[in-house]
Design a protein around this nucleic acid. Sequence first.
DNA 1: GCTGGAATCAACCGATCGGTGGAGGCGGGT
DNA 2: ACCCGCCTCCACCGATCGGTTGATTCCAGC
Lengths: 210, 210
Amino acid sequence: MIRLLIADDHPIVRDGLSGMFAAEPEFEVVGEAGDGAEAVRLAEALRPDVVLMDLQMPGLDGLSAISLLADRGVTAKVLVLTTYDTDGYVVPAIEAGAIGYLLKDAPRDELLRAVQAAAEGRSVLAPSVANTLMNHVRTPRAPELLSPRELEVLQLVAAGNTNREAAKHLFISEATVKTHLLNIYAKLGAPDRASAVAAAYNRGLLKPSG
Amino acid sequence: MIRLLIADDHPIVRDGLSGMFAAEPEFEVVGEAGDGAEAVRLAEALRPDVVLMDLQMPGLDGLSAISLLADRGVTAKVLVLTTYDTDGYVVPAIEAGAIGYLLKDAPRDELLRAVQAAAEGRSVLAPSVANTLMNHVRTPRAPELLSPRELEVLQLVAAGNTNREAAKHLFISEATVKTHLLNIYAKLGAPDRASAVAAAYNRGLLKPSG
DNA sequence: GCTGGAATCAACCGATCGGTGGAGGCGGGT
DNA sequence: ACCCGCCTCCACCGATCGGTTGATTCCAGC
């Protein structure tokens, strides 16, 4: 028996979902919320297995609600159910802690299976959402803005090396390192090494966990 | 009719796949490759719709082969078919340009549907792979390593501000900014501002495109 | 009421960085 | 043959940064 909480600002949608799950013996709708704040409150009180969460809601939005649930140690699996599949919504939702992301045009049986999967801790992604997520991960084929040598220098700088240290690593003089850095600043539009590192991350020239 | 190329270093696997698709009228196996280099060569010559690519192959591995195909403008959709679903493999593969990632234990019909999806340009992810991909995107809930104020300071520094400029922005003295930065260095294990910025990106405290 | 963290400020020092203006060699493309 | 980008190197300067020590206020948790 999977206990679930429905959070959506449209009563019609709540009724529809509620009715759909009520008809299935293995699901039990334990509560409904019309906004994010209520969703958090009810999730804390009712401890459902799964929360079906819309993103656009008045007051506290779904995204913030998800973060808040995580902060408060609510272990309910949050399944986002919304109409939009743009990068701007799906990535933050997953970052915030959603275990799945479905679109409202999903067929009935897909939704049922998704909730079951979520309850078991398995991720669920709508096919089109999988696309956008992958596009997000995919490196946008950087147009070789920096030369290989410049990239090496920047990596060493990002690792905390001084110019002198970087020079030793590369078997070149400190002056050369400085020249490379000046070129890097020009190319990235950065005034100093710190913002050059930031710019490099933003453009995917440097990648996290590397 | 979907034309496909099979790249796997095990002949048995190639035979198995080849036989499976030969039995289906809507597929045609136009070539088989035993290593990455051959895969690239055949893909360029035969221009298949889909390439079924193993990752571990002698010589040029699958990952490099995928990158090479992209570089050479080969538009074939690459579907990774391997035995491993660890983060270390799936993320690079997708970054390199794979449109899908399946495991070899996938049931026969799932594989057929996946190839069809790939041919149409739709992403395909094995369920467990979806999990690892999402875990990769998901920010690892940073334990509030930096205080809000420290994060503000670091953001300004990453934007290229000097200590003095950052101080003005925050309506505090330059000395305070320096103190904050020293605390940041200690918390992030960074010797200077540049590597502190890098460390912040690596830990998800600063996010790209922001 | 005490402790501890966060945030604020100060003064000082040496080391480093950023900026400028050169210079030469080497390779690819027109 | 020419130009351009990349990589290499040098010297000088002021500005900034990193490190240290010490201090105060405020607030929250025990």
